[in-house]
Structure formats: structure tokens, C-alpha cells
Design a binder for these strands. Sequence first.
DNA 1: CACGATCATATGTCTAGACATATAAGTCAA
DNA 2: TTGACTTATATGTCTAGACATATGATCGTG
Lengths: 242, 242
Amino acid sequence: MSLATNAADQPTLYKRIRADIEKRILTGEWPPGHRIPFEHELVARYGCSRMTVNKALSELAQADLIERRRRAGSFVRRPQHLSAVLKIADIRAEIIALGRSYGYELIGRKLRAATAADRDRLGVKKAGKVVAINCRHSADNVPFAVEDRLINLSSVPNAATADFSREPPGSWLLHHVPWTEAEHTISAIVADDRTAEALNIAVGAPCLVIDRYTWRSARTITAVRLLYPGDSHRLVARFKGG
Amino acid sequence: MSLATNAADQPTLYKRIRADIEKRILTGEWPPGHRIPFEHELVARYGCSRMTVNKALSELAQADLIERRRRAGSFVRRPQHLSAVLKIADIRAEIIALGRSYGYELIGRKLRAATAADRDRLGVKKAGKVVAINCRHSADNVPFAVEDRLINLSSVPNAATADFSREPPGSWLLHHVPWTEAEHTISAIVADDRTAEALNIAVGAPCLVIDRYTWRSARTITAVRLLYPGDSHRLVARFKGG
DNA sequence: CACGATCATATGTCTAGACATATAAGTCAA
DNA sequence: TTGACTTATATGTCTAGACATATGATCGTG
């Protein structure tokens, strides 16, 4: 019976159900915490058996996109299942997890029309407004990292009015812009005068550089460069497979 | 009827099937390319319906542990689905992928009983033999990275007789020891005299350091430290999720 | 109000079938 | 030998049920 609805479909039904739900999550229509329809509701909507819906939801749960709770339903998960490398997205959380006291200091914040350099850095073509932020993170009152960030206001208009004097922009973004993709580039430099002063290390000391570029559904969110003292910091990534 | 076999089990049947197969793959009993039993054979062995074994196999396929081919069967996959950060496990493949000519040079190779330092580095308690290898990778005849590696012969006895004068140990291991887990630690240093000479860079130039520790099923395989010129190398990792 | 016991319900797992579909393998002709 | 056609088969998807189980809600009691 339900095969009727499957007549002109290219993908199979359970994949369509999965894709439908995934799309609503990724576009933010169903934000983290949102309860997605019960299985029996989806059964009614798609006119299929429960096993079909269950397969779609199971795969979404396996991908950590949703969390399934008996008796309660299925809920969109908060994106907290990141690999260790990405977890440094929230430096505050990282430092607190290490049991050290976290310190944050906003050095500069500018709202401006995107310059050519800004557009290049964000990988966007059209002009628009951006926020440029400079700040410093510390652990136990020792400089931990300096951050140089650009936020694309076309994608995240709220960031124009967010108060970054108390909350670090990485944490703010993590809570306001869920489900992004990111690309990291890791390299090493030696500290120049400015960096050495900001990190309280010697000029010429090694620094770890992390450039992260973040987007959601083809919209650039933010570009950030983080500088860590190279001898004191460790990025740990653990993988399974080959 | 099949519920009878499920009587004293803690995990559910499909999870047990999945775990059974996963174990044989991870221990190497079923190497890459091996055809695992057909669904109908597993149905007979576990006395359950096909949907149950199908669920187990589908999850293994989703985890990229096996590949399913219609009419042919299901096969253990070669571990080639690594994240970008881990892909540097095979520097030769990385350089060739960049379209550059790969060069390899074995600097030193020692077979010895594990010293206290070796055991500490490998994270093993019992004494045993190890191979210590020093080598250099180059791209277009320019030094690309120097490698300092320790292989635990208790886990990989074959490595004692492998010819590392032509094949880099990372590539050799990748082809002889499938399905490992790894932990990376990334940091930055400045080049000392020896490093500077090996990489043909200036003393005091920044270097990216990657320490990788690899194991399989609680058995340590190898520990390696890679040094890259920090200004010329880029580690790129791309993630999906928050 | 706090705390247990009970109940309702959504998910978790499973069955014994079914038809669809891709494809390895065999068959036959050019 | 090679290419085209046929066939057998393993996986892919789906159904309409079933019972198990965890847990949010509700209700009653001290």
C-alpha cells in the first residue's frame, strides 16, 4: 500500500525520511532540543510501516544528529560529539575541563563593511558587514591562546549585538549557530614581537597556529586564527580506523 | 523461536552478531578482502530472521568496516576512510596525492631489547624487542619530514625482517597491520641543530611536531614522532558537526 | 510537600514472510 | 576470443504484526 507513495521516488523511502529530517535539523528549522515527530506520526505522514521510520531514525541517532529517549521521543542533539581536534572550538570549555581557571579578555572588536581582505579570508564574494574580534584566553592566569576572528554578519546577524566582552565569541557561536562544518589548518610559526607579548613568551619561541574556517550549508560563518604557545600546548586527536 | 537463544544474553542478538564479526575483523582473523558469511548463513548460525542479521551487517557497513556487494556478498574493507589528520599516516601517499615526486631515505634502523625509555614511549610494561627507525621523507627532493619511530615487535613480529630501506615504515605498517586506533598529539618547536640540518631549514625555524601512538585491541603497535617544517606544511582536517 | 507505586507510552528489538534490483556467472552466437 | 543475452543469487527495502523495556506522568499516601 505504501508503495504507492514510493512510485516516482528516486531514493528509497527510508532515505527520504532520513533526508527530510536531516534537512530540517541542518537548516535550523528544528533546533537542538526540538522533539521530532513520534514514530507513529511519521508512519501516518509517510504511509509506511514503523520499521521503515525506525530505520531512518536509527541512522540519524547513529550519526548523533538526534537522541532517542524511551517514552519521551526523539530530540535534536546539541552538537557535542566533536572530535578532539574540533573541541578546541570552545577554548573555555577545554580549559575548564582541564580543571584550570578560565580567563578571558576582549582586546578589540570592530564592526565594519567587509574589506577585500575580509572577503578573501571568509571566502565570500559579496560585500557585507563583518565583526572582527581580537581576544585572549588564559588558564590559571597564564596566557593560553590569542584569537583573531572574523564573523560574517550576513550569516549571523545576531553577532552584531552580542556582548563579546564577557563571553568568548567561540562559545557564543557554538551556542547560537549549531551544526556547522569546519576545516582546520594547523601549522607552526615563531612568535613575533606582538605575539610574544600577547602570549607572554619569548620572541622566537615556537607557536602552534590553528586556522579554522566554519560554515553551514554553504554559508560562511566565521574564520578564526588561534595562536598557542607551541611548547605548552597539545592538540590531541584520537581516531579509530586504519 | 529464536528468542530461545536470546535467553541469557545481556546484549541484544543483533548487537552480539555485530560484535562477533567486528571482533574477527579487528583481530585480523578476517583480513581486508575476506568475504564474511552470507546473510542466510548467519541466519542459520544464529537461528534468527534475516532482518536481524541485516541490521547487524548494515551497521558494520555504515561504520565502513565492511562493504556489501549485491550478488557477491559482504567483504572486510581496507581501512581507507581516515580523517585527513590521520591520512598523514602514509606520508608517501600524501606526497604522491599532491602530485609531487616522493623521496625516501632510511637514516638508521636498530633492533634492540626495549629500554626503559622505549617501554615508556610505547606505553608497555613488559620487556620485549623493538625496532627503532629514523628516516626522512622528501617531496620534489626537498625535505618534507623526518621520522623517528619505534615498532613493538611483540605486536608486529614481521617488522623485524621487513625491508625499511626502500619502503617507509608507515606505509609498511598500514598494509600489514590493519584496523588500528591512533592518538595524535600536535605541538610546535623550534628547530635545533640536528633538526635544522635534517630538514634543511634554519636553526630556530618553527617546526610542527606530530606524535602518534598507535594500537590495536589494547596492543601497542608503534610510536612515531614526525617533524615538519612549520611554515611550509599544513595539516588540514575537515569535520562535520557543531 | 515529598516520596513510592502504578500506569501509559515511545522506543528497542524481532519475526516470517515479500518483491525489487544489481550483478557475478554461465550460455550462446558472431 | 569476444560480446550480448540470460539466469541465479545476495543484498536492499518493506510489511504488519509482536513482545520487551525504560521512563515520564499520574496518583495516592505519609
